[in-house]
């Protein structure tokens, strides 16, 4: 059911001449979850909309689903499922009506629609809300309706445009795990847009980091974190220290109190799971070190810094 997606020379220039996306190639394996990660305006949503069929690429660009050229096929004929940032649920239909919409417009017999909708309701734990108006649902419930509506017609590809950004942090974490479990169980090719690097790490098989309309790096979360292709990627997926030519993450360093230490503690900030310590040396260089909240040094203390061994 799931398909491999290939983009060839896909760029997008808006009528005003603004380049949203420079021509790029991208290969997504069947069943893979690819996360498009980047700040707002980096072109990640435009890229998703090209794959969805909501936008046409500039002349010369091609979108292929399992080798079939779907570039000119509008979204309604691509058989994709899509979850929007605003959910865009239909206010004139109840929960079950929303979930069954994609099945009804395909002319699937009523009994089959009802059976499939029940299955979706159960899968997303919405059974008791089947007859509820969508404007009487909480944010998390709306999100699950949007997801169920997208996957009910068994699409070839699932596209998610910042589906969790409207929710608060706790709920986001919970739903992220649900979405992750769902994508694994469906084995569907999924493309997920987010600006949240933790979400990207948790959900992705691979992450495609984007910067100003270009792909900055494609790889697993570990690749991006430990071997970032450039400073932009390094900075976007976490905080970094620069030691000479090398980038070092704050949690890869350890402190040792020492009267002869070359670093002075500037400030220690308690952040819950760890304490972030800011250091400075005589030359004015700065360094961030994350450490457990056990023997946090006081500001002004002299310390040595060492690399932690590989975990």
């Amino acid at each position: 059911m799931s398909v491999a997606i290939k983009l060839r020379g896909c760029g997008k220039t808006w009528p005003g001449g603004t380049v949203a996306l420079h021509p790029l190639d991208l290969d997504i394996a069947a069943g893979e979850t690819l996360v498009l990660l980047g700040p707002s305006g980096c072109g990640k949503t435009t890229l998703l909309r090209l794959i969805a069929g909501l936008e046409l690429p500039d002349a010369g660009g091609q979108v292929l689903f399992d080798g079939e050229d779907v570039t000119r096929l509008p979204i309604e004929r691509r058989n994709v499922g899509m979850v929007f940032q605003s959910y865009a649920l239909f206010p004139n239909m109840d929960v079950a009506g929303n979930i069954g919409y994609g099945l009804r417009v395909r002319g699937i017999p009523r009994a089959e629609v009802a059976r499939r909708v029940d299955e979706m309701l159960e899968m997303t734990r919405l059974t008791e809300f089947a007859r509820r108006r969508v404007d009487a649902l909480s944010g998390g419930q709306r999100q699950r309706v949007a997801l169920a509506r997208a996957i009910a017609p068994r699409p070839r590809v699932l596209l998610l445009d910042e589906p969790l950004s409207a929710l608060d942090a706790r709920l986001r974490e919970e739903l992220r795990q649900e979405i992750d479990a769902l994508l694994r169980s469906l084995g569907i090719t999924a493309i997920y847009v987010t600006h949240d690097q933790a979400e990207a790490m948790a959900l992705s098989d691979r992450i495609c980091a984007m910067e100003r309309g270009r792909i900055a790096q494609i790889g697993t979360g570990r690749d991006l974190y430990h071997r970032p292709a450039n400073d932009f990627v390094a900075g976007f997926v976490g905080d970094t220290n620069r030691l000479g030519e090398e980038l070092v993450r704050p949690e890869q360093l350890a402190l040792h109190p020492s009267a002869e230490g070359e670093w002075t503690v500037q400030r220690a900030t308690f952040l819950g799971p760890f304490v972030r310590v800011k250091l400075r040396d005589a030359a004015g260089r700065e360094l961030m070190v994350d450490m457990p909240d056990l023997a946090t040094p006081a500001p002004g203390a002299r310390v040595e810094v060492r690399r932690r061994g590989p975990a």
Binding site: L54, I75, E76, V105, R149, P153
Partner: peptide, 17 residues
């Protein structure tokens, strides 16, 4: 007052002509 573009795109994504 409603999200016309969003609703239409959502309906299209569901396969509606």
């Amino acid at each position: 007052s409603m999200d016309l573009k969003g609703l239409e795109e959502a309906a299209r994504a569901c396969g509606a002509s």
